[in-house]
Computed example of a mutant assay.
Amino acid sequence: MEIKTGTIISLNIGKSINIADTGEREINSAIYKSPVLEDILSLTKNGLQGDEQADLVNHGGFDKALCVYPFEHYQYWQNKLNKDFPMGSFGENITLAGMLETDTNIGDIWEIGEALVQVSQPRMPCYKVAKRHDVVKLPLYIQETGYSGYYLRILKEGDISVRDRCILKKRSSNISIAYINQITYHDKANMKAKVELTNLEELAESWKRNIQIK
């Protein structure tokens, strides 16, 4: 197996806040994440030390304990939308270079510092990332490009640092995050592929249910 490594550009955390601009009802979200100053953070099965999740149905939990977004996409969005995107702009806990959606497979196990993590599913773009950047079509653009990012589950808790590298320790499938995005958003009639994904043990159950509905 090829030894792949990723470089952590930023570790990001955020608190749950009300992002609604009307008084009708609150919309709580922790989409506003920013780089941490601490050298070392604790990573548990519930996520990164100091981070919060407001919507525990669609974010957080065992299969979505940690969100990753590829650093390489930042330049694309800045050019396309003509605006600045600071690290953490996509609600990710790890801004990571070297592990794109095309390079990253479901079930991949990485070592980060003392921790072991496993790739569980793509990140599904929602209206909250559009709200943060005041770009209504941003979730659609993310679907079109496949620049989604992805989630990790925590297999072994431990301390991690922005100085650590993500080291691929085990690869158990040849199904990439990019492939899953393609089937989910652009090739919905491909039932053979949907069955293949449904039978993929390491893919999060919530994503399996989602592709069965679409």
Score class of each variant (00 low, 15 high):
89 S>Y: 07
175 I>G: 03
13 I>F: 09
192 K>M: 12
44 T>D: 06
41 L>N: 11
63 D>F: 02
85 F>G: 07
74 Y>C: 08
140 L>P: 08
113 G>M: 10
199 N>G: 02
192 K>I: 14
66 L>G: 11
108 D>G: 05
64 K>H: 11
175 I>A: 10
150 Y>K: 09
60 G>P: 05
137 K>V: 14
78 Q>S: 12
100 L>H: 08
61 G>R: 06
5 T>S: 15
22 T>G: 02
30 A>L: 10
112 I>P: 09
109 I>Q: 11
214 K>N: 13
157 E>F: 12
140 L>M: 15
129 V>Y: 01
179 Y>E: 06
125 P>L: 03
207 W>N: 07
108 D>K: 08
191 M>L: 15
168 L>Q: 03
131 K>E: 03
51 D>G: 02
138 L>N: 04
92 E>N: 00
49 Q>G: 06
1 M>W: 02
33 K>I: 03
3 I>D: 08
211 I>A: 09
102 T>P: 10
179 Y>Q: 10
130 A>P: 03
31 I>Q: 04
208 K>G: 08
106 I>T: 00
39 D>A: 14
213 I>H: 04
195 V>D: 02
84 D>K: 14
214 K>H: 15
204 A>S: 10
28 N>C: 11
74 Y>L: 11
192 K>E: 15
208 K>Y: 03
108 D>C: 05
152 L>N: 03
47 G>T: 07
45 K>W: 13
52 E>H: 02
115 A>V: 06
77 W>D: 06
139 P>E: 04
80 K>L: 07
174 N>I: 10
202 E>T: 09
158 G>N: 01
181 N>D: 01
64 K>E: 00
48 L>Q: 01
186 H>P: 01
66 L>C: 08
205 E>L: 11
23 G>I: 12
11 L>R: 05
20 A>K: 08
73 H>F: 00
176 S>M: 10
51 D>E: 02
82 N>H: 12
180 I>R: 02
70 P>N: 06
163 R>G: 09
90 F>M: 13
198 T>C: 14
169 K>H: 10
24 E>H: 11
2 E>A: 13
71 F>N: 01
191 M>E: 14
195 V>T: 12
174 N>A: 13
206 S>A: 11
171 R>M: 12
139 P>R: 11
53 Q>W: 09
118 Q>S: 05
7 T>L: 07
118 Q>A: 06
109 I>V: 15
31 I>T: 06
42 S>V: 14
15 K>Q: 12
78 Q>H: 04
180 I>T: 01
26 E>L: 10
199 N>M: 03
20 A>L: 07
3 I>S: 11
162 V>N: 05
69 Y>T: 00
88 G>M: 04
23 G>F: 07
44 T>C: 07
155 L>P: 08
123 R>S: 05
106 I>R: 05
126 C>K: 07
64 K>N: 06
120 S>E: 00
147 Y>D: 04
2 E>C: 13
153 R>S: 05
170 K>W: 00
129 V>G: 10
